[in-house]
């Protein structure tokens, strides 16, 4: 601010105290200077920006965009590969599962066959054993009946004798037989 008062002497837009007369914006005396330096400044800025800065920033932005696009493409590829790998894994799994199921079914069928054969054999054996036992039982039952008749006749004879009766063997036997039949 100190230079303001000294500038007073040489400008018609500044009073003796160094203050502006009216609006400094309207001081025609200063305009050529402002316009000249403005044009210089704009020329320098335009030169520096258009020759150096803007192409550089543009190329950096383009390079970044390219890098990002490449990375995205690579990521996309990797993702496709991962999906493929997963599909292969799932396929292998499914195949293994069906194979296992087939083996299980086969084993089950074989076992069933063996089991059926063994069952049939056992059934046949059991039937034979049962038939044999039936025969034996019938034999024993027949034997037992005979023995009962014999014992009954003897017992009847002994009873008749013990009671003091006198009976011939034939009539006693006939009576017991009749009784047993009844």
């Amino acid at each position: 601010m100190a230079t303001e008062s000294t500038a007073a002497a040489v400008s018609s837009c500044v009073n003796d105290a160094g203050s502006a007369i009216g609006m400094p914006q309207l001081c025609v005396e200063w305009m050529p200077n402002q316009i000249f330096w403005l044009v210089v400044a704009l020329a320098v800025i335009y030169f520096v920006l258009s020759r150096i800065a803007l192409p550089r920033i543009g190329s950096v932005l383009a390079e970044r965009k390219g890098t990002i696009t490449n990375d995205l493409t690579a990521a996309e590829e990797l993702k496709a590969k991962a999906v493929e790998a997963e599909k292969a894994y799932q396929d292998a799994l499914a195949r293994a599962r069906s194979e296992a199921a087939r083996i299980v079914a086969e084993a089950r069928a074989e076992i069933q066959k063996d089991l059926d054969a063994a069952t049939a054999k056992a059934d046949a054996e059991i039937a034979a054993k049962a038939a044999e036992s039936e025969g034996r039982i019938n034999e024993i039952r027949a034997g037992a009946l005979e023995a009962v008749t014999e014992v009954a006749k003897d017992t009847a004879k002994e009873l008749v004798a013990a009671l003091g009766g006198k009976a011939d063997a034939r009539s006693v036997t006939a009576a017991v037989t009749a009784r047993l039949k009844g």
Partner: peptide, 14 residues
């Protein structure tokens, strides 16, 4: 408005 005064950087010439 004094802040808008244009003045030389060196010396006091016009």
């Amino acid at each position: 408005m004094d802040q808008f005064i244009v003045k030389p950087l060196f010396g006091q010439g016009p």
